[in-house]
Simulated scan of single mutants.
Amino acid sequence: MFPHTDPLIHTPEACTASINAVKDALYVLNGKWKLPLIVALSNGPKRFNDIQRALGDITPKILSKELKELELNEFVERKVLADIPLTVIYELTPYSGSLTFVIDELQKWGKQHRTRIVSNRKQLPDQPMTDKL
């Protein structure tokens, strides 16, 4: 099915193991916010409101939930600084670097897909072409 898959090792067991591995990854990185959140933190620690501004249309409740889940899975660390007033910052852990290749490939594919969809889309009369897919 996939051009990079070696048919000699494509056994039912290998297929099941691949499915389980993908399911595990999607379980940890589920939703539309986790990977963009990691990207937003990739250039250094940020406070909650700075992260929310960087991501745009995420609600505080969802951002809080996503940060907690990323912290539980050891991608993000929450630090409370003893400033007055107290300052809470979020930063990536070294383990988050294990997602670099995944994020890079998703960025490449996302750009390629957007270009393909936009170039193949037929613009209907009296309808502007939007930037949204």
Rank of each mutant, 00 (worst) to 15 (best):
Met1Trp: 11
Phe2His: 15
His4Ala: 15
Ile9Ser: 12
His10Gln: 15
Pro12Cys: 13
Glu13Asn: 08
Ala14Gln: 13
Thr16Gly: 03
Thr16Glu: 12
Ser18Cys: 15
Ile19Gly: 06
Asn20Cys: 13
Asn20Val: 07
Asn20His: 06
Ala21Asn: 15
Lys23Ile: 09
Asp24Phe: 11
Ala25Thr: 15
Ala25Glu: 12
Ala25Met: 14
Tyr27Asn: 02
Tyr27His: 01
Tyr27Asp: 03
Gly31Pro: 11
Lys34Trp: 00
Leu35Lys: 12
Leu35Thr: 10
Pro36Leu: 05
Leu37Gln: 11
Ile38Glu: 09
Val39Arg: 00
Val39Pro: 03
Ala40Tyr: 06
Leu41Ser: 09
Ser42Ile: 07
Gly44Tyr: 07
Pro45Thr: 08
Pro45Gln: 13
Phe48Glu: 01
Phe48Asp: 02
Phe48Tyr: 11
Phe48Val: 08
Asn49Thr: 13
Asn49Ile: 15
Asp50Gln: 14
Asp50Glu: 15
Ile51Trp: 04
Ala54Asp: 10
Leu55Thr: 06
Ile58Ala: 01
Ile58Asn: 06
Thr59Ser: 12
Thr59Asn: 05
Pro60Trp: 07
Lys61Glu: 02
Leu63Cys: 08
Ser64Val: 01
Lys65Leu: 00
Glu66Ala: 03
Leu67Val: 03
Glu71Ala: 07
Leu72Ser: 08
Asn73Thr: 01
Glu77Gly: 03
Glu77His: 09
Lys79Phe: 00
Val80Lys: 05
Ala82Val: 05
Ala82Leu: 03
Ala82Tyr: 03
Ile84Cys: 00
Pro85Gln: 05
Thr87Trp: 04
Val88Gly: 06
Glu91Ser: 03
Thr93Leu: 03
Tyr95Trp: 02
Ser98His: 01
Leu99Glu: 03
Leu99Arg: 05
Thr100Val: 06
Ile103Asn: 07
Asp104Leu: 08
Leu106Val: 05
Leu106Glu: 04
Lys108His: 01
Lys111Asp: 02
Lys111His: 02
Gln112Lys: 12
Gln112Phe: 10
Gln112Asp: 12
His113Gln: 13
Val118Lys: 10
Val118His: 11
Asn120His: 08
Arg121Ser: 14
Leu124Ser: 12
Gln127Asn: 13
Pro128Ser: 12
Met129His: 06
Met129Cys: 13
Thr130Ala: 10
